[in-house]
Design a protein around this nucleic acid. Sequence first.
DNA 1: CATTAGCGCTACAGTTTTGTGACGGCGCTC
DNA 2: GAGCGCCGTCACAAAACTGTAGCGCTAATG
Lengths: 230, 230
Amino acid sequence: MNPHVLVVEDEDALATLLQYNLEKEGYQVSAAGDGEEALIMAEEETPDLVLVDWMLPKVSGIEVCRRLRSRQETANVPIIMLTARGEETDRVRGLDTGADDYIVKPFSMTELFARIRAVLRRIRPGLAEDVIKAGDITMDRVAHRVKRAEREIHLGPTEFRLLDYLMQHPGRVFSREQLLDAVWGSDVYVEARTVDVHVGRLRKALNTKEERDPIRTVRSAGYSFDVSGG
Amino acid sequence: MNPHVLVVEDEDALATLLQYNLEKEGYQVSAAGDGEEALIMAEEETPDLVLVDWMLPKVSGIEVCRRLRSRQETANVPIIMLTARGEETDRVRGLDTGADDYIVKPFSMTELFARIRAVLRRIRPGLAEDVIKAGDITMDRVAHRVKRAEREIHLGPTEFRLLDYLMQHPGRVFSREQLLDAVWGSDVYVEARTVDVHVGRLRKALNTKEERDPIRTVRSAGYSFDVSGG
DNA sequence: CATTAGCGCTACAGTTTTGTGACGGCGCTC
DNA sequence: GAGCGCCGTCACAAAACTGTAGCGCTAATG
């Protein structure tokens, strides 16, 4: 699915503004009001990028950075720091706070988007990629098209997102619950078996009789996308 | 491919802003932070247009101009100069710096795009098309005319802008909200479903019974202009 | 070999999304 | 001020998609 951004900002107006605009730009957004909350959410949700204000109640922005870095699961999550003019110390300029980039308030949304994209591209190539290929399967996320060996594949919205997510992490096995969280959203409740049905539909759309099924069923564990290995 | 623009700007915020917006408009963008870097990149990449700040560290904007002009490979590359108000000397006005146009900061992106198109049109007709063609559909942005297979198509202003925007980014899927922002303007409020109605009108005007509909509906995502694939 | 949990597949009823004709409003021209 | 073209919204029908249940098969388990 789309990149997931965690916004850590205590000033309510700015937080809402960020959330609104990021969502509009196509990001999935969570928001935390202070550093403590941020650390908990970061652990639970493993965002693709964290946007954190320098000045925060309870745990400061730098401290959030440091702790994110020190934890195994979040050590490599890219971080962009928000600072007000004047807070722009040498320490921030040098980015030895652990952040990957910083931006000075006030900033335009466009500029922020540009930075986010740049950082994502740098840290996680493939995440911001428009076209994903695996074997003879091509997925164009901008054109919303899937092709297999010159053949146009029509997918419903859910199957499209499902394939997108699986191709994003090839080889990795996901449980039905994980897939529901990632593809359907963590807030909806649907039966786990529903995943089976959509995997089935995806397979039917994707494969002809001659072709190898790229989706592997791992009994009592889940599914994974594997184009190479058997 | 799309025109390649080299941005030469030392101020980071403006550089990212330019890069982001140019990319979004469909240009391929490289960025250089100073004049020295710019000259190297210009030589390596042979851009279709150079956007250069007047004030630069190491080698000034004028100097960049001069050197680009003096080199065989880059002698004919169009150049647009960025100046701050006050730097707007007679020399810039007369453009005897070697630049083809200049623009005074602060400027709107729309204005910049217009200048870029104008310069490309003048210097390199064919790169900035006034006339966009896709399949048997021809759109003349200057004469405000649309033809399909020798048949004159009459469109209302909104449908014209809509088709223009879609054809400008063929293959790409836009949500109703994005289309509203781009075609109607980000400040007006209209129902998202209004886009459907205009797409419907556009289709009716564009297609006869025999012809393939160039506008693709992507369920729960939006619309895109696609003349080839499908 | 019998048992059983897990999975593939189909059918279907319910829901969401899209296409489209109709309508009233607004601005412009004659 | 009547006529015309264009616009935005609504309402309804059609189409596409979704989730769940159920049945039969298969692979593990003992």
